[in-house]
C-alpha cells in the first residue's frame, strides 16, 4: 500500500499512456467494422472468408503479433503505435463478424418499408438500419473495449509504457503491491469503460432501456 501512495504519479502516467494506446484501436475497430461488415454481407463467399479469417486472427497470441508487425509494416517493437495497430487488428477480428451479424439481424421487410417510404440509401442506413443493429453492435464494442484495455499490458514485456510496466517492474523489484495496483487499475479501467459504453447505449438508444424493463 505504501508503494501505491508513494507512486501515484507513476500510476497516473502509465494510466494515461495506457489509454492513449487502448482507445484508438477501440474506435478504429468500431468505425472500420461498419463498412467492412456491409461489404462482407453483400457477398456470401466474402462473408464466409471474413468469418474464417477473423477466427484465425483471434487465435494468434498477442505477443507474437506485436513482434511480427514491425517486420511487416516497419513500426518499432518498442513503439506504442505498434501495440495500437496490433490491437486494432484484434478489435476488427472481433467486431467485423459481430457487425455482420448485427446488420443481418435487421429485417429485410423493415428496410423495404423504409425504402418505400422514400428513405434515400444513406438516410436509410443511418436512421433505420444502424439504430436497429445498435444493440448487437454495442455488445461487440463492449467486448472489444474490455479485451483491448487488458491486452495493452502485454506490451510491458517489450518495454512499451503502459500499466503493464507495473507488472514487469514489480516482478523485477519484487514489489507485490506494484503488481496488485497494476491489476486493479487495469481491471477498473476496463470495467469503467464498459459501464460508460452501457450508459452511452442507453442514452443514444433509449428504446433498449424500456425493453429491458419490460422483459419478464
Amino acid at each position: 500500500m505504501k508503494w501505491v501512495l508513494d507512486n501515484l504519479d507513476v500510476i497516473a502516467a502509465y494510466t494515461g499512456a495506457h489509454l492513449v494506446q487502448a482507445l484508438p484501436p477501440i474506435l478504429v475497430a468500431f468505425a472500420l467494422s461498419l463498412p467492412l461488415a456491409k461489404l462482407a454481407n453483400s457477398r456470401g463467399w466474402l462473408r464466409a472468408s471474413v468469418t474464417t479469417t477473423s477466427g484465425l486472427m483471434y487465435a494468434i497470441p498477442s505477443l507474437p503479433l506485436f513482434v511480427l508487425l514491425p517486420g511487416l509494416i516497419g513500426t518499432s517493437v518498442r513503439s506504442p503505435l505498434n501495440i495500437s495497430i496490433a490491437l486494432s487488428l484484434y478489435g476488427l477480428a472481433l467486431m467485423v463478424p459481430t457487425a455482420s451479424d448485427a446488420f443481418r439481424s435487421v429485417s429485410g421487410d423493415v428496410l423495404g418499408s423504409a425504402t418505400a417510404q422514400g428513405y434515400a440509401p444513406a438516410a436509410r442506413f443511418l436512421q433505420v438500419e444502424l439504430p436497429l443493429a445498435g444493440p448487437v453492435l454495442l455488445a461487440g464494442v463492449r467486448v472489444v473495449a474490455v479485451s483491448t484495455i487488458s491486452l495493452v499490458t502485454v506490451g510491458g514485456v517489450l518495454g512499451v509504457p503502459s500499466l503493464g510496466m507495473l507488472f514487469t517492474d514489480g516482478v523485477r523489484r519484487g514489489i507485490v503491491a506494484e503488481i496488485a495496483a497494476g491489476i486493479v487499475v487495469t481491471a477498473a479501467l476496463a470495467l469503467l469503460t464498459d459501464a460508460l459504453l452501457v450508459l452511452l447505449g442507453r442514452v443514444i438508444m433509449p428504446w433498449t432501456r424500456r425493453q429491458e424493463g419490460r422483459r419478464p
Binding site: V143, V146, S147, I149, S150, L151, T153, V154, G156, V157, L163, G164, L166, F167, T168, I179, G182, I183, T186, A187, A190, L191, D194
Partner: peptide
C-alpha cells in the same frame, strides 16, 4: 475478461 494476463 478484464483481468490482465500478464498481471496474474
Amino acid at each position: 475478461r478484464a483481468l490482465p494476463t500478464l498481471g496474474l
